[in-house]
Structure formats: structure tokens, C-alpha cells
Computed example of a mutant assay.
Amino acid sequence: MTAAQINPFVETDERKQLRAAVAALGETYGQDYFMAKARNGEKLDELWSEAGKLGFLGVNLPEEYGGGGAGMYELSLVLEELSAAGSGLLMMVVSPAICGTIISRFGTETQKQRWLPGLADGTFTMAFGITEPDAGSNAHRIITTARRDGDAGTEHDWLLTGRKIYISGVDQADAVLIVGRTEDARTGKLAPALFVVPTDAPGFTYQPIPMDLLTPEKQFMLFMDDVRLPYDALVGQEDAALLQLFAGLNPERIMAAAMAVGLGRFALARATRYAKERQVWKAPIGAHQAIAHPLAKGKIELELAKLMMQKAALLYDAGDDMGAAEAANMAKYAAAEASIGLVDAAVHTLGGSGLTTEYGMAPLLAMSRIARVAPVSREMVLNFVAQTSLGLPKSY
């Protein structure tokens, strides 16, 4: 019996080979490529295309639709390794992880055939729109509304109206999976529903949000004014959309953790290499505990976060959505905190060099901070754990 059979956190040979192949691709591009694209206002098109051709982007999607037939463990592994090389692909979080997962689990056969092959090889990119200006973390306050235009018993159209904010990568997406609401004809109440909206649809517009973040992917405000959609733009059932939504949010948290773990690994590698080489007294600065201990502490916290991320992915791939929800939230929280702490320690290790363009550490200060507020804030994760894991009452 192998170690991987005894302990699921000892990776199989296949996963080790995948990790090595993705790491090699990441090294081919790296942080210099990433930062040059960000500064020039360009996208990571070459890396995205090559990752798609190699099967990395759709490794979690079903084989019959062009995917790799694996799971969230493998997809999070891909994003972790790319991020550890300094060239993380943010759109992996939304296109194959959220949108691909929801469509593969709840879409019709026609929808799967239409969208999944492109999501798997990267030739079709889908953004995800849930956040609204007046809703924040309260999904129950979403007011983007779809109403039927025609007889409910026929293949009617939908008219979608509303706004979304902080939606990533809309300018490089072919469509956006929008979280809206429909009116229940029996009760008159609004129920969550998911719609695929082409970015070139009449009535659909978007504008960039100025951000002090140096990343190739931009954030956008979306405006939908009676966007006409065919009846089959609805993904899944109207009355089951909340469960479908959560099926996409667990992968989102797992992938956010993977990106934070990878970023933390990148910062730690830069800092430890510098600490081994930089010498101003009798020994390299890494010999001093004031330098060594923060990095060692960060390494421990990062490894613990990674274990929780792997647990979440394994639970999700096993079909345990509730168990995966707890682990995914914990993983996202732990990875964010570990990443922020490690980036801070890395910058401090490099001293003045940590703020220079040459070493590429300063942009990570803002990038690592994102994981604490998105895709769900640290405080909402703590609320989830308090209420779901500990059974404590809600305060809101």
C-alpha cells in the first residue's frame, strides 16, 4: 500500500506529475511576464491559451465535454502552482471553477455541449456576476431581476434588469453567469436564478472601476437594461438556484485559497533566497532569528492552510457539499491570513529592496490583501463558522 493510499494528503504520482508540469509552465512565464502585462494594460492571453491547450484550465470538467475528468483538487493545484511562479490566473477562479462547475452539475445537455468545451480549453471565457452595490455580502438583497416575456408554458424569452459591481475580467469574457432573481408565479416572491448573458448582448454594458491594484485583470460595474435572453439562458431550475449558487461558491473559496497559498509560496521563496545570500555581518541575515522566525512561522501557517484547502477540495470532489463548505471557508480564511503575513515578512526581510521594482515584492502587498476581503470577507467567514460549526445565533 502506498503512502497516498494511506493518507490522501500524500499526493499520487499523477498529481505530482501534474504539479511539476504546471510549475514548468509557470516558470516559462513568471512574475516578469505577469507584471509587464499588468503595467501595459494587457491580458495574460499567451499563458491562458497555452494552459488551455495543455488541458490545465479544464482539468476539473467532465471528459466527455473536453475536460480532464478530475476535480477541484487538481484545478486548485494548477492555480496554486501558477501563483507560486508569480503568474496566477484570476479568471480560473470564475471561468472553469465557478461557471464550469455550475453548468456541468446543473446545466442541460445542450448547455453543457455549448459552453463546457470552450471553458475547458480556454477558447470561451465566462465571468461571474453576483455582487451588487446595495447588497454587499447579503445575497438576499440582490435586486437584479429577470421577468418572462411570453407565455410561461412556452419557450419564452427573459428580460434581465439590474446592476453588478466588482466583477472580474468582463472585458476578456465572452459571457457572464449572472445571479438574478425571478418571480414565482405562485407566491409572487423573488427566487434566485442563474443566467448566462453574452457580453455583447444589447442592453448589457460595463465600465471599469478605477483600482490601485497592479494586475492584468480589471474590475467592472455591469449595467443590464432589459437584456433579452432566450429561455435556455437560465441554468438549472428556478426554485433550486440557491443550492446551485452554493455549489459554485465552494469552488470559488477553494480557488481563492489556492491563489493565496501560491502567492505566499512565491513571497517566501523570494525572501528565503535573499536571506541566505544577503550578508552584512558575520553570517547571512537568515541566521538571525528576527529574520528567520517570521519566515518559519509563515511557512507553518501556509502549510496548515494548504492542508485545509486540500481537505475542502477532497470533500467537494466526494460530493459532500456541506462538509466542503466548512472546510472551504476555513481554507480561504487561513490562506489569506498566512499569505498576508508572509508577504509582509518577505518585504521586511528585503528591507529597502522589498519596495523596489527589481524584486517585485511591493505589488504583492495589495494583491495579498485582496484575499482577506474577496470573494467573501474574513468577518463573514467567521460568522459562517460561528453559526454553522459552533451553532451560535446570528447577530444579523
Score class of each variant (00 low, 15 high):
residue 331 A to T: 00
residue 339 S to P: 00
residue 350 L to G: 09
residue 337 E to N: 12
residue 378 R to A: 02
residue 379 E to Q: 08
residue 350 L to T: 03
residue 332 K to W: 05
residue 364 L to Y: 04
residue 380 M to I: 09
residue 344 D to I: 02
residue 390 L to H: 08
residue 382 L to A: 06
residue 336 A to M: 13
residue 387 Q to G: 06
residue 336 A to S: 05
residue 358 E to D: 14
residue 369 R to T: 15
residue 366 A to L: 04
residue 396 Y to I: 01
residue 366 A to N: 01
residue 332 K to A: 11
residue 347 V to R: 03
residue 391 G to D: 03
residue 385 V to N: 08
residue 364 L to I: 15
residue 352 G to I: 14
residue 368 S to N: 05
residue 367 M to F: 13
residue 342 L to R: 13
residue 355 L to E: 06
residue 354 G to Y: 14
residue 353 S to Y: 15
residue 383 N to L: 11
residue 337 E to T: 01
residue 343 V to F: 01
residue 352 G to E: 15
residue 366 A to D: 14
residue 391 G to S: 10
residue 352 G to P: 01
residue 332 K to P: 12
residue 389 S to K: 06
residue 370 I to M: 14
residue 360 G to K: 11
residue 342 L to M: 03
residue 349 T to S: 00
residue 348 H to Q: 15
residue 364 L to C: 04
residue 378 R to S: 04
residue 360 G to R: 13
residue 343 V to G: 10
residue 337 E to R: 09
residue 382 L to M: 06
residue 396 Y to G: 06
residue 351 G to N: 03
residue 382 L to G: 02
residue 387 Q to Y: 12
residue 336 A to N: 10
residue 336 A to L: 11
residue 334 A to S: 02
residue 393 P to R: 06
residue 385 V to L: 02
residue 384 F to Y: 02
residue 372 R to E: 13
residue 378 R to I: 01
residue 358 E to R: 11
residue 393 P to Q: 05
residue 331 A to I: 09
residue 373 V to K: 09
residue 390 L to I: 11
residue 375 P to L: 06
residue 333 Y to N: 12
residue 358 E to V: 08
residue 355 L to R: 07
residue 372 R to H: 13
residue 392 L to Y: 04
residue 351 G to R: 09
residue 353 S to R: 14
residue 364 L to H: 05
residue 352 G to M: 12
residue 386 A to P: 08
residue 380 M to W: 02
residue 343 V to N: 12
residue 338 A to F: 12
residue 380 M to Q: 07
residue 357 T to Y: 14
residue 360 G to M: 04
residue 382 L to I: 06
residue 339 S to F: 01
residue 364 L to P: 12
residue 348 H to L: 08
residue 383 N to R: 05
residue 394 K to I: 14
residue 349 T to W: 11
residue 366 A to I: 12
residue 339 S to C: 09
residue 342 L to H: 04
residue 390 L to M: 10
residue 360 G to Q: 15
residue 359 Y to P: 10
residue 387 Q to S: 01
residue 371 A to C: 12
residue 353 S to L: 15
residue 348 H to D: 08
residue 357 T to A: 11
residue 334 A to Y: 15
residue 356 T to A: 03
residue 387 Q to H: 02
residue 359 Y to D: 00
residue 378 R to T: 03
residue 348 H to G: 12
residue 389 S to C: 06
residue 379 E to A: 08
residue 357 T to Q: 02
residue 357 T to F: 11
residue 386 A to H: 09
residue 366 A to R: 04
residue 362 A to E: 15
residue 355 L to S: 10
residue 359 Y to G: 11
residue 337 E to H: 04
residue 391 G to L: 05
